[in-house]
Design a protein around this nucleic acid. Structure first.
Lengths: 236, 236
DNA sequence: CATGTACCGTACCGTACGGTACGGCGTCAA
DNA sequence: TTGACGCCGTACCGTACGGTACGGTACATG
């Protein structure tokens, strides 16, 4: 299957207002009950008829797929603004990116969507796995790489392949967080823990990929909390 | 739920020979078809009666739980032999550990079990998530930490918390591999890629946590392939 | 041989679910 | 006013599945 490059998965089915309302209800159901609800349950919760659901989305998998696409398309705003690069700014961007991503993957919404997508990836039904992959893992890769490359161009970072640098970033930031949440280990990961985890991850990342030519290398204690106004990366 | 410490999940239900045969068939079904097979399908595939299945395992969830436990108990052998510590030996152990774990999480069996466990963790049914967590993530943690601590005691490694050091190891080795496989991205990860990935991960790990007092720090090109005879870590 | 045990194969039951059909209601345009 | 349209609510249908029951067989034990 091997997802190639594409991020947006350009099939952008537009939904009507009513349909979006319904999809939000489905999303809430997925968060609360996983994948185990019936179409009748959706209709009841959303106060709509099963007939409408089938007319709009085809079948049950179509409902779930539309829900995931709707959620994925939701936060496609917030482009990263390419500011003038100095090491402190880069560090701040990376920390904001890391903290944001950590808060996303620990959110109930992301966990629920990933769970459904993973279970659907098992048996062949539906493309949910690919959709989540494209809008999660690969989307944030495509968003982070330009930042990394800008850092390299400015002489602050050093790496051969931005893909490999990104994967190291992914590992250092995410560690065991996502798999633990997916498997139901609901350990505490509050705002503060996320901030310190993000800082530690970026410290480590800069040790591995920083040139040390600009900015306090491996200092780590001074900066304030990761920028709150950073671009939302991905909701999945 | 926050799994505390325990690894073996000591409820070790012993299974008869016939039951183990059946559980292997269930495992094969899970690998091939995910979670979407009926109990009748198991009975047909295993040439046993549904009545026996229900007598042995209670209900369908009991069958799946027994399957996961059986697989988990399978490779609990292979203890790490505490050899005399020098840096080259430690590096070799870590590389072997990493390569072994990568080959496990990219195996069809592990992917299938984790998928089922993740989907069951969504709705509350069954303890599959916790079982997989205990025998996967936490089991390898408990196996690796003594090695890391031995390395620290020998002055080769430096870290405050072995838990944190292990989580960094986990991230550097696993990166995006597990989530990509779980979501159905069947990219190539052959023996050779695993070996080089393991070496790169350990190089990075040693940059972050090595003291550099012993052994070629950050050299990376010389060692041969990771020891093949290393202990099997975990099958999940 | 008689009895018990463990199991297989199959038939059976109740239910829950995916998907369809239909009647009714509000809205809007001619 | 009339008709078309979109939608809700509900009733309906077929099926597939979880779980149980039962008859039949092999085997072991006395």
């Amino acid at each position: 299957m091997m997802i190639a490059v594409a991020v947006p998965d350009d099939e952008e089915a537009e939904f009507t207002e009513r349909q979006r309302e319904v999809l939000d209800v489905v999303l809430a159901l997925m968060v609360e009950e996983g994948d185990g609800f019936s179409v009748a349950r959706i209709a009841r919760a959303a106060s709509c008829s099963k007939e409408s659901l089938y007319k709009w989305f085809g079948d049950r998998d179509g409902i779930l797929t539309a829900t995931v696409q709707w959620q994925a398309s939701r936060v496609r705003a917030g482009e990263y603004d390419r500011q003038r690069l100095d090491a402190a700014q880069l560090r701040k961007s990376l920390e904001g990116f890391a903290a944001n991503w950590l808060s996303v993957i620990s959110s109930k919404t992301s966990i629920a969507l990933n769970r459904v997508a993973v279970s659907h990836a098992g048996n062949g039904r539906s493309r949910l796995g690919q959709i989540v992959l494209a809008n999660g893992r690969f989307a944030i890769g495509e968003r982070l790489k330009p930042i990394l490359e800008a850092g390299r161009a400015a002489g602050i970072l050093d790496f051969e392949s931005s893909e490999e640098a990104f994967r190291a970033f992914f590992g250092l930031v995410g560690r065991d967080v996502q798999i633990r949440f997916l498997l139901g280990d609901d350990f505490l990961l509050d705002e503060e823990t996320i901030a310190t985890d993000a800082r530690r991850a970026i410290d480590q990342f800069l040790v591995l990929f920083g040139t040390g030519k600009d900015g306090k290398k491996n200092a780590g204690g001074t900066g304030d909390a990761p920028a709150a106004g950073e671009a939302k990366i991905s909701i999945i």
